[in-house]
Design a protein around this nucleic acid. Structure first.
Length: 875
DNA sequence: AGGATCACG
DNA sequence: ACGTACGTGATCCTG
């Protein structure tokens, strides 16, 4: 075994050094990063050069230490730590944790004392010790075993203080460094020493007498001089100074050397911290991404025929797909494992195997999978109706922590410390080099995934149960996955001809507007380029600059809206933008997504993506089809039922988020408003403006509505002022009046932020969690954002819980009633169905009934509905 | 690849 | 005093 090497870092001192050595760097979110950056580069270098086996970073704990008992002025008169530095300490701690390095601080003691104590302890064992600090005092710890590294010139150079080095430099032993300081003092720590004695004198005296004590013992022999008078006059002060400068090596620490083992960084975590801080150069230099995981050998078999004996009652199953577009991509193969034997079946064989198909369709045969919805949809295309999924790694991992990104098995597994599976990128390649690998690599990759799912199932279920989230996962998300899969596979019919006709008309209009803009600008340019547009508007036409972005002038709609009276071009640009958006995103974009085979679009609902528990929709996104402006709303005319004499039926929750807020805050006034079936915005206006219901005009209601939105988002006066285009002060008054009228809401908002600070997370009605690590950040921006999130997430997330539950109940009810009606889409607070006309009456009864009773709140839920021959008409 | 913009709830 | 509304996805431009 190689000799142990202990690295002891003086966290505070190194952070200070780095801070003052480097210019004030900031990252994208405006946090200063120079101290963290300097600290990191220094740490990287030392790790590389020294290869320590144990590490500790020590920090100073509080302001007072035991030294203050000796001398209350200790470290007095110091400049307060600059806020640009103090805001970096949380990141330094985060970084150290990501490295897997232990850190420690102790009340009443300084980092020096922790380091001294551990260095001392290590010296009793056969261990090399390296101490790193920016503070020269630490050199007193140097021995044959302990080398003290002191940073020089900021942090770029290091001076290695061994006893020999110190002897050469000062002619003193390391212990005499303390005496030296006792005599000369230290202005930065406010240690007085003997006035008039500097380094030279101190060294000379110590060479002659050995120590402060012996110097005073031998004072009689010293020749009378000014210096002697000073020494005599300050004897007590010299002895006290020495005492203050002495590092205490018997601090009552409760860690031992064996706690300090260093096993390398948690790469995921480190990369994420570096990304957060914007350390691009370090990310590029690091070999983390290219580093191949050392793969343990893996045993599996490629089947040439699937036999009954291969298939067990409980197995992990992985359907390997060509890419994430599971409605269109090629299915490559199926891997199966029962933990003992792992098998791979090429998909062409699987598709032909009745044995395998029957097993996959058998709900009593239990399957553990990851992203079962993707598999369900891709199998359906091959005529296989997947059933019996009892575990889904993707969903379990998402419920456990929705912040974790990755959706492939390797990423999910790695987050749980399981590494015997490769990233898709490593097997398929990326960018233009991406290709389906040969059968041996492909089959092993898929097999390892199945095995990973098998291995992680117990662990995740335990984690979920510990957090009381197993119900949410098993009874909500898992069955929902199957329903969403059916919705996606069913798809919604889009009338190509309708879109193409709209596209033609739009195109004609766009050409006219484009010419008008060029004429008004006096030249042609790319209207879609904010940069070029900015030059035209603000430089050439000299319009007033209202807002700027990072990259230049802002030309966003709210800015242009204010510029409307200034120039005729503005209106044209706004119209060009509006129509251009419709053309590119909703006409051309949607046309590209229509499947030739069935004339439908098949979106993918991302079920494990949002931080709040909502779904999202991609390829195409069917959750942001225009509705607010009439021109855009017409796009909905292209969405039609799949069969003749069918209709589209749309049902949406009225004010679900405010109802959730009423329920959770239990605010008397808000609860009463909903129980009495009042218009909540009108009610808010009455309270805020102190008027009666019939005195509320449209402007008052509009303002009240904005306040209600603000409340849901985690209000700020600035945000509200921007939204309503009023002054901050006026906005603040609104908020004040709102809270006076709805004190329960105010109480809830305060409580939820407190809860989040205490727990580190917030929860929804069905116990969905969102962690908010920034809630205790010293960075104002980050903390404020986390606070607003703490207020908003339980509301948005609980609304998501409710509609998800409604979808499950709805699916069951449609089956129970033997209906042909199908749920096609979910748009956060709205469900869209298609059904034969004959079922309209029944839908009108059961849809609101099921949705309104999905979850019982202390206020009623209300559902509005409509139907028609197109989505446009179902309003 | 990231920013700006804009579509939705 | 600090600088903002919460949650998404698609398209276009630019470096």
């Amino acid at each position: 075994m190689t000799k142990e090497k202990l690295l002891l870092l003086d966290g505070n001192s190194l952070a200070y050094r780095a801070f003052f050595a480097l210019p004030l760097l900031t990252n994208e979110s405006g946090i200063h990063t120079n101290a963290v950056y300097g600290f990191t580069t220094m740490l990287q270098r030392i790790l590389e050069e020294e290869q320590p086996t144990k590490i500790l970073v020590a920090f100073d704990a509080g302001k007072t230490t035991f030294r203050h008992e000796t001398y209350t002025e200790y470290k007095g008169g110091r400049q307060k730590t600059p806020s640009e530095l103090s805001e970096q300490f949380p990141y330094i701690r985060k970084l150290i944790d990501a490295y897997g390095i232990k850190r420690y601080e102790l009340e009443m003691y300084e980092a020096d004392d922790i380091i001294g104590t551990l260095a001392n302890e290590a010296s009793t064992q056969d261990m090399d010790v390296i101490v790193v600090s920016g503070d020269r005092d630490l050199t007193q710890l140097a021995t044959e075993q302990v080398t003290v590294y002191i940073t020089k010139k900021g942090i770029t150079e290091i001076e290695k203080n061994t006893p020999a080095f110190i002897a050469e430099k000062y002619g003193l032993t390391p212990q005499q460094i303390i005496d030296m300081k006792g005599l000369m003092g230290d202005s930065s720590d406010n240690i007085p020493g003997v006035p008039g004695v500097g380094e030279k004198t101190a060294v000379k005296l110590l060479k002659e007498h050995g120590s402060v004590e012996s110097l005073y013992a031998a004072m009689d022999t010293v020749k009378a001089s000014k210096m002697k008078e000073k020494l005599v006059a300050n004897e007590e002060q010299a002895l006290m100074s020495k005492k203050l400068a002495t590092i205490f090596t018997k601090a009552p620490i409760d860690i031992t050397l064996s706690d300090l083992a260093y096993n390398g960084p948690n790469e995921e975590e480190l990369i994420s911290v570096w990304q957060e801080l914007g350390f691009k150069s370090l990310l590029e230099k690091s070999d983390f991404t290219v580093q191949e995981e050392e793969q343990a050998p893996f045993d599996y078999e490629i089947l040439e025929e699937v036999k009954q004996e291969h298939l067990k009652d409980v197995m992990a199953v992985h359907l390997e797909l060509e890419d994430e577009h599971y409605h269109t991509c090629q299915q490559l193969g199926i891997a199966l494992t029962d933990g003992a034997k792992t098998m791979y079946v090429p998909f062409d064989l699987a598709a032909k195997s009745d044995v395998l198909r029957l097993w996959l369709e058998d709900a009593t045969k239990i399957k553990y999978m990851s992203d079962s919805k993707a598999s369900q949809a891709a199998l359906k295309r091959a005529g296989i109706r997947l059933a019996g999924v009892e575990f889904d790694l993707l969903l379990a991992s998402y419920i456990n922590n929705p912040a974790l990104s990755g959706d492939d098995v390797a990423t999910l597994a790695k987050e749980l410390g399981y590494r015997n599976v490769q990233a898709n990128e490593a097997v398929y390649g990326k960018g233009v080099k991406r290709a389906i690998p040969a059968i041996d690599a492909l089959s092993e990759h898929a097999s390892r995934k199945a095995f990973a799912v098998w291995s992680l199932q117990p662990k995740l279920e335990t984690l979920l149960k510990e957090n009381e989230q197993f119900e949410l996962y098993k009874n909500l998300e898992l069955p929902l996955a199957s329903i969403l899969g059916e919705m996606e596979s069913e798809g919604i019919t889009v009338n190509r001809a309708t879109l193409e006709k709209m596209g033609q008309e739009l195109n004609d209009k766009l050409i006219v507007i484009e010419q008008a803009i060029y004429a008004e600008a006096g030249e042609t340019f790319n209207i879609n380029s904010p940069k070029q547009l900015g030059v035209i508007l603000f430089d050439k036409l000299g319009l007033p600059v209202i807002k700027k972005t990072k990259t230049g002038y802002s030309t966003a709609a709210d800015v242009l809206e204010k510029l409307k009276p200034e120039h005729a071009i503005i209106e044209h640009i706004l119209l060009y933008r509006q129509l251009g958006k419709l053309q590119s995103t909703y006409i051309e974009g949607l046309l590209k997504e229509i499947h030739k085979e069935d004339g439908k679009v098949h979106t993918r609902f991302q079920q494990a993506l949002t931080a709040t528990g909502r779904l999202s929709s991609t390829d195409p996104n069917l959750q942001n089809i225009p509705i607010r402006l009439e021109e855009g709303r017409k796009i909905r005319q292209a969405f039609v039922p799949s069969k003749e004499d069918w209709i589209l039926f749309s049902a949406d929750y009225s004010q679900i988020e405010l109802r959730v807020l009423a329920h959770m805050s239990n605010d008397k006034n808000l609860v009463e408003a909903f129980r009495e079936g009042m218009d909540v915005h009108t009610r808010t206006a009455m309270d805020v403006f102190h008027v009666s219901a019939d005195e509320v005009d449209s402007n008052m209601r509009r303002a009240a509505k904005a306040v209600n939105f603000g409340i849901v988002y985690g209000i700020s006066d600035y945000g509200l002022s921007q939204n309503l285009d009023i002054t901050r002060k006026e906005a603040a008054t609104f908020i004040e009046k709102y809270f006076a009228s709805f004190p329960g809401v105010k109480q809830y908002m305060d409580d939820i932020v407190q809860d989040a600070k205490f727990n580190g997370y917030v929860t929804t009605i069905l116990n969905r969690r969102r962690y908010l690590p920034d809630i205790t950040s010293s960075n104002f921006n980050l903390r404020s954002f986390a606070e607003r999130t703490a207020m908003n997430t339980p509301i948005q997330g609980s609304a998501a819980d409710i509609i998800k539950k409604a979808m499950i109940d709805m699916d069951a009810r449609l089956k129970k009633e033997n209906m042909q009606a199908k749920i096609l889409l979910q748009v956060h607070d709205e469900l869209i169905f298609e059904a034969p006309k004959e079922e309209i009456a029944l839908l009108e009864k059961i849809v609101p009934e099921v949705m309104e009773n999905a979850i019982e709140l202390s206020v009623p839920l209300k559902v509005d509905f409509n139907y028609g021959a197109t989505w446009y008409e179902a309003k």
